[in-house]
């Protein structure tokens, strides 16, 4: 732990290891990002990519980087960071390492909105909008169901599981109602894909991250750490527990909804990234910023893998995150069991 103090009474506390993890994630994301911008049907060297990014490219390079590849990359970074940040918040709020938006029903809610649009036949903008709105509405619904003079972690989980089950049923029914072409499109969306994502997909998530990210990290981060110790302890230390929980839940649900709207309900990032971050930083607590940075890296790497693993054929990124995330969980389980902790 490093402490920085200025004569003006400002004091900051930094954890070298968490800082190193965060910085490494950010640098790796940039490196893989440059690689991603240079690869495709028209390969470019890293130097060409950097030249184009700084405004010195040919018109063709400009078009390829700025209009085709950069939006996809930025969407991946923003969606990864948003999902992981929300996941870290959920896990702390419900005090359950499995507290992810999938478990709580928010991704199923976003899917319902998207499926309705697909079945009645709407544009992709309508689809994104519907996913965001219905995801957020599901969050509200779960909160209202779980409310009883305050919301407790396990009640939130139970309400979420119930709502998720109902919505999964509805989603299945909607899928069977869709014509074959639409059903295929719907399944692709449900898997989570970054294919053909443009600025219109990236921007809402970016804006939400820019507004909610600092508020969650700086405004609520320290209080969130206290809420890990139980409502009574946090409250005794001066945290307005119920109000903060509602605000954080709202912010996290909004991030998840917008991320789902941009890339579909990408599997497992929200669940895996915070766990991985905690293992890497070895710091107790929600590890919000390292989680977000790691989530961005995970999704960028997963998207690159999805594009390359089968030559000539792109996998939806959700398939890869599912494989990585699921594999990681199983590895974690065996490692913990070997260490005698589980």
């Amino acid at each position: 732990m490093i402490v920085v103090r200025t004569p003006g009474g400002i004091s900051l506390r930094l954890r070298p290891r968490a800082l190193a993890v965060g910085l490494t994630c950010a640098l790796l994301t940039l490196a893989v990002g440059v690689l991603a911008l240079g690869s495709g049907d028209y390969p470019m060297s890293a130097a060409d990519v950097l030249r184009t990014l700084t405004g010195g490219g040919t018109p063709a390079e400009e078009f390829i980087v700025h209009e085709l590849r950069l939006p996809r990359l930025v969407t991946a970074i923003a969606v990864g960071a948003a999902l992981a940040l929300a996941g870290a918040v959920f896990q702390t709020l419900v005090r359950n390492p499995l507290g992810s938006p999938d478990l709580l029903g928010f991704t199923q809610g976003a899917a319902t909105g998207a499926l309705v649009v697909i079945v009645i036949g709407g544009t992709s903008t309508m689809l994104s909008g519907a996913a965001a709105v219905s995801g957020f509405a599901t969050g509200l619904l779960v909160y209202v169901i779980a409310w009883r003079r305050g919301v407790h972690g396990y009640r939130l989980v139970l309400a979420g599981i119930g709502v998720a089950a109902i919505l999964t049923g509805i989603n299945g029914w909607l899928l069977t109602r869709a014509p074959l072409m639409d059903a295929a499109r719907a399944v692709l969306w449900l898997t989570g894909s970054l294919d053909g994502r443009g600025w219109i997909h990236a921007l809402p998530v970016l804006i939400a991250l820019a507004l909610l990210g600092p508020a969650v990290l700086a405004g609520a981060g320290p209080a969130l750490r206290l809420m890990e110790m139980g409502d009574d302890s946090a409250s005794a230390l001066g945290v307005p527990v119920e109000r903060l929980r509602l605000a954080l839940l709202g912010a996290a649900v909004l991030l998840v909804s917008l991320a789902s709207a941009a890339a579909g309900p990408v599997n497992f990032v929200a669940l895996t990234a915070p766990h991985l971050a905690r293992r890497l930083t070895r710091a107790p607590g929600p590890n919000l910023l390292p989680s977000a940075l790691l989530g961005a890296l995970l999704l960028v790497v997963a998207d690159q893998t999805a594009q390359r693993v089968i030559p000539g054929h792109q996998l939806p990124v959700g398939v890869v995150t599912g494989l990585i995330g699921g594999g990681y969980l199983i590895w974690l389980l065996t490692a913990e069991r070997r260490a005698g902790r589980l």
Binding site: R95, R225, E228, M229, G230, D232, S233, S235, A236, R278, R282, A283, P284, G285
Partner: peptide, 14 residues
């Protein structure tokens, strides 16, 4: 201040 009846020590905290 309050010392509650039950508090949860976060995982891995010193």
């Amino acid at each position: 201040g309050l010392l509650p009846q039950s508090s949860v020590a976060p995982d891995g905290i010193g």
